[in-house]
Design a protein around this nucleic acid. Structure first.
Lengths: 194, 194
DNA sequence: GTCTATATCGGGATAGAC
DNA sequence: GTCTATCCCGATATAGAC
């Protein structure tokens, strides 16, 4: 793996664990095992590293979502797969929250020019979820349902991070999976179900 | 208003808008109109200011919740009042997210000793919501319902902040209010409703 | 209580040898 | 490509005059 790629990998992880602003070049350099000076051969500024990290997250998200689409024929199972991310990544989420939601919020507070770029990861999930609901026969409501599923996972992630309560995550995922089942049993009442 | 109180007020606002770590003493001093040096007469460290801010938030949250309890006899209306915070504070939430969720997450990432202190604000809301559901006849599920309402508002806040979509907030609040109505019409099925 | 002046540190970023 | 040495700045924090 090239040095540049190693820098992006290390920064990706550290930006998640510590936040973008509090992560120093020294911390990244130490993780990778290079000197601070060497950084500037690969990147001009810290903001450039951030953009490269966001680009890497966009790419890996696209790959993951495409893999889920290939892996299961039933769109309902695909949505389930998304919902269960909060279980798969339980430990990280308890410690650091959702990587997407926490970065977009940090960049919002910093009034950072890359905020919109980071929101793109959310948009990937949103669009992908919308497409699943469209395949399931929803039309105008498909985007609403996508946003609802996204909101669910963000709410769980934030409270899981605050209270460190793993049982809560399990319970809520079960509940949403039941909601999904009900929703798909009677699409006409989708707007009443909650 | 005393200088100390002014410092806490300004820090409270700036920690919300910019985050704790990125907010400098210089920014607070400029807001209040004092010199940086004068700070250390009132507080020993920046962490002490953070604790004072959290204490202020705990106090104002207690006052707000007590006021809501006095203001309406029906616990359902009180819960509605909570849910509608995301509408009342729409502008701030779009710009900066939820003050509680974003601070607890920042402190989690910083591995900051005051993290638990900040989570106390969440606990105030959680306990208060649980009590409302208990008054409505829920027993074992009351805390689950409280967490669900909390999770809802956190999900809305995060996505509202990411996408700057005000209509989404209105729609989701309507939806949750309908869910509340249904829930209270048939408490026995509380666990199936979502 | 509030100020100015200053100490000390760590941050991002640059220059230039190798 | 990678290093060491260094610059510059802004951060928290301190000392001491008023």
């Amino acid at each position: 793996m090239g040095t540049r790629e190693q820098i992006v990998d290390a920064a990706n992880r550290l930006f998640y664990e510590q936040g973008f602003e509090p992560t120093s070049f020294a911390a990244i350099a130490e993780t990778v095992g290079i000197s601070r000076g060497n950084f500037y051969y690969h990147f001009k500024t810290k903001d450039d590293i951030l953009d490269a990290v966001i680009e890497a997250r966009l790419a890996s998200t696209r790959t993951m979502l495409a893999g889920w689409a290939d892996g299961s024929a039933d769109p309902r199972d695909r949505v389930r797969r998304f919902v269960e991310i909060v279980i798969t990544n339980r430990g990280d989420i308890e410690s650091y929250g959702c990587p997407v939601g926490t970065l977009t919020n940090e960049l919002a507070k910093l009034d950072h020019p890359s905020r919109a770029h980071a929101v793109g990861v959310f948009t990937l999930f949103r669009t992908w979820l919308r497409e699943q609901f469209e395949e399931l026969g929803f039309d105008a409501e498909a985007d609403d349902l996508a946003m609802r599923v996204l909101a669910f996972s963000q709410g769980i992630a934030t409270l899981s991070n605050a209270f460190h309560d793993g049982d809560f995550v399990d319970r809520e995922v079960d509940r949403v999976n039941r909601w999904l089942t009900e929703l798909l049993a009677s699409p006409a009442t989708a707007d009443d179900a909650s």
